[in-house]
Design a protein around this nucleic acid. Structure first.
Lengths: 183, 183
DNA sequence: TGGGTCATGTAACCTGTTACATGATTAG
DNA sequence: CTAATCATGTAACAGGTTACATGACCCA
């Protein structure tokens, strides 16, 4: 149940509509968690039923009406609880279609494997580039987060990403060499 | 649809029962893909309906009967097809409850964050240790894989894991230091 | 006599994905 | 005129998780 808690964490910074949450989510948590817009709306409904949120309809002229969600005390204590609960071991596991394909690459040609690895490198480079762009996002959102030092944690997650993709690129280079030498 | 293809890949090495597949899966693919036993049985049924597999009941005395699955030509071509199909971009994304908690760690104390990071390090060390154990598994399974060089790809995926967990440990050390200095 | 191995599942549930629907306003 | 932004969803499906069920054999 992490998507719910991610939304809870964002609403803890301030009340927002589903639409705004969707954008905030995609600007911040998206690098380590993904969610479809439709899923966000569904979860917000469920969370309201759980009593974690309340909603208020805001009428607008010239624009569609909107529904603003606010975190409740119950929601806030749920967030703290979740934060301090141990993460189960299986949450640390890797899930990678890419590695699964590599595992079975004995079933195809050397060239096809190398093409996949080169595509992989391109993906990593793109992901890394977008992480270097988060610095400006962090500054953009900083005023909305009450205590400034909280942004430190955002930066730490971004650092993880940078280290991760760098490691992937290095590994891919070594792997391509290993394959070339095994010919 | 990667679990189906993982099972297909294993059955491509030789016919097996659900029970044997479950064990082979957990000995090999488990580091980058996870599946419950019940899910494996369910998927085998679905794959048979798709015509990717055939099954044959083997009667046994003193032991429960078993059902052996064999890959069909359709299944084999599905496997090759899947291997050479491009991996969609979203398959490269990270999903990490751990990073989500770190992101929101401004909501809790410094000590609690550090405890989480130390737990994380322990998890990484365990995972790394179990990867160093795969070498013997690779040798164990090698006779079952027709062409010996296929084990190269298994080793490459294990190398990824080792690099990954090493990177995680280094990052966690740096992160703990950063947090200590920010006090 | 208790726990591990062998062997196969069902049912309910939760989460995530894909496709679709609507419709006004505003900036280039 | 056309694309983006604002704003909220529903429905169907796919995939993964959890809990439960059964029962014999074998070894310590």
């Amino acid at each position: 149940m992490s998507l719910k808690h991610g939304l809870l964490g964002l609403l803890n910074y301030g009340s927002m509509t589903g639409y705004e949450l969707d954008k905030a989510f995609k600007d911040s948590l998206n690098f380590f968690w993904q969610a479809q817009t439709s899923q966000i709306y569904r979860e917000l409904n469920a969370m309201e039923k759980l009593g974690w949120l309340t909603s208020e309809v805001i009428f607008q002229t010239n624009k569609p009406n909107k529904k603003q969600y606010s975190i409740t005390p119950v929601g806030r204590s749920e967030l703290k609880n979740w934060l301090n609960k141990d993460i189960p071991d299986n949450e640390f596991q890797i899930r990678s279609v890419f590695l699964m394909k590599l595992f079975f690459s004995g079933e195809r040609s050397f060239d096809e494997s190398v093409i996949m690895l080169k595509n992989y490198k391109n993906n990593c480079m793109d992901a890394m580039a977008s992480l270097y762009g988060t610095n400006s996002l962090i500054e953009l959102y900083q005023p909305y987060v009450d205590k400034t030092h909280k942004a430190v944690y955002w930066k730490l997650t971004a650092d993880f990403g940078k280290s991760y993709f760098k490691m992937c690129l290095d590994w891919a280079d070594r792997t391509i060499k290993t394959l070339e030498e095994s010919l």
